[in-house]
Amino acid sequence: IQIFEKGDFSGQMYETTEDCPSIMEQFHMREIHSCKVLEGVWIFYELPNYRGRQYLLDKKEYRKPIDWGAASPAVQSFRRI
């Protein structure tokens, strides 16, 4: 998965294949504004440590949070399923 600090795949980008319990600790990001799921299925969580509201992401590109069903870019953790 590739995660971006700004919408439309702009700003700082990080790519990982590992679960992330805290985007702040692992990537020094506060929010995720866009992402590209390159393979597999992932779950975004609103809070750290896989808690809070969940969003299921299939293999595709998400230009903004509304594309994965979120009203805001408040994603604090994610993991692959």
Score class of each variant (00 low, 15 high):
Q2G: 12
Q2L: 09
Q2T: 06
I3W: 07
I3V: 06
I3M: 08
F4Y: 05
F4V: 00
E5G: 08
E5R: 09
K6S: 14
G7M: 10
G7P: 10
G7D: 08
D8K: 15
D8W: 12
D8N: 14
F9Y: 09
F9G: 07
F9I: 09
S10P: 01
S10G: 09
S10L: 10
S10N: 14
S10K: 10
G11Y: 05
G11N: 09
G11H: 08
G11F: 02
G11T: 04
Q12C: 05
Q12L: 09
M13Y: 14
M13G: 07
M13T: 12
Y14I: 09
Y14A: 13
Y14S: 14
E15S: 14
E15N: 11
E15T: 06
E15V: 09
E15H: 05
E15Y: 15
E15C: 04
E15P: 07
T16P: 14
T16R: 10
T16K: 04
T16D: 09
T17Y: 02
E18W: 11
E18Y: 07
E18S: 11
E18H: 07
E18C: 10
D19N: 03
D19T: 06
D19R: 08
D19C: 09
C20A: 09
C20I: 11
C20Y: 07
C20L: 04
C20K: 08
P21L: 09
P21K: 08
P21N: 08
P21H: 14
P21C: 09
S22W: 14
S22D: 14
S22L: 08
S22V: 11
S22R: 08
I23L: 04
I23S: 07
I23V: 10
M24T: 10
M24S: 05
M24H: 05
M24A: 06
E25R: 08
Q26M: 07
Q26T: 06
Q26S: 07
Q26A: 08
Q26W: 10
Q26K: 05
Q26G: 12
Q26L: 12
Q26V: 10
F27A: 12
F27L: 11
H28Q: 12
H28I: 14
H28L: 12
H28A: 13
H28V: 09
H28R: 07
H28N: 10
M29T: 14
M29P: 13
M29L: 05
M29C: 15
M29I: 08
R30A: 13
R30Q: 14
R30M: 13
R30T: 10
R30D: 10
R30W: 14
E31K: 07
E31C: 04
E31N: 09
I32W: 03
H33P: 13
H33A: 07
H33R: 07
H33N: 09
H33W: 13
S34G: 13
S34F: 00
S34K: 00
S34N: 01
S34D: 00
S34A: 09
S34P: 00
C35A: 08
C35W: 09
C35I: 07
C35N: 01
K36D: 08
K36C: 05
K36Q: 10
K36E: 08
K36L: 07
V37E: 04
V37I: 04
V37R: 12
V37K: 12
V37N: 14
V37S: 14
V37P: 12
L38S: 09
L38M: 07
L38G: 11
L38R: 10
E39P: 03
E39A: 13
E39F: 08
G40Q: 03
G40M: 01
G40S: 06
G40V: 00
V41Y: 03
V41E: 06
V41C: 05
V41R: 13
W42Q: 00
I43F: 10
I43L: 11
I43M: 14
F44D: 00
F44T: 03
F44R: 00
Y45I: 00
Y45K: 01
Y45T: 02
Y45E: 01
Y45S: 06
Y45D: 00
E46W: 00
L47N: 03
L47D: 05
L47Y: 11
L47G: 06
L47K: 10
L47M: 14
L47I: 01
P48T: 10
P48C: 04
P48R: 06
P48M: 03
N49F: 09
N49G: 10
N49A: 08
N49K: 07
Y50L: 02
Y50E: 01
Y50F: 09
Y50S: 01
Y50W: 07
R51V: 08
R51E: 12
R51Q: 07
R51D: 10
R51M: 13
R51S: 12
G52Y: 00
G52F: 02
R53F: 06
R53T: 08
R53G: 07
R53C: 06
R53K: 10
Y55F: 15
Y55W: 11
Y55D: 01
L56A: 15
L56Q: 06
L56P: 15
L56D: 15
L56T: 07
L56R: 15
L57A: 07
L57Q: 01
L57K: 02
L57C: 02
L57R: 02
L57V: 13
D58T: 10
D58C: 13
K59R: 04
K59G: 04
K59F: 05
K59N: 01
K59I: 11
K60A: 10
K60N: 15
E61P: 14
E61G: 11
Y62T: 03
Y62F: 15
Y62N: 10
Y62R: 15
Y62M: 15
R63V: 04
R63K: 05
R63M: 03
K64L: 05
K64P: 03
K64Q: 06
P65L: 06
P65M: 01
P65C: 03
I66V: 02
I66R: 12
I66L: 09
D67G: 05
D67W: 13
D67V: 08
D67Q: 07
G69A: 10
G69S: 14
A70D: 08
A70Q: 06
A71S: 04
A71C: 06
S72A: 08
S72L: 10
S72G: 12
P73R: 09
P73H: 10
P73V: 15
A74M: 09
A74E: 04
V75E: 00
V75I: 03
V75G: 13
V75Y: 04
S77F: 00
F78K: 01
F78S: 02
R79C: 03
R80C: 13
R80L: 11
R80M: 02
I81K: 03
I81L: 06
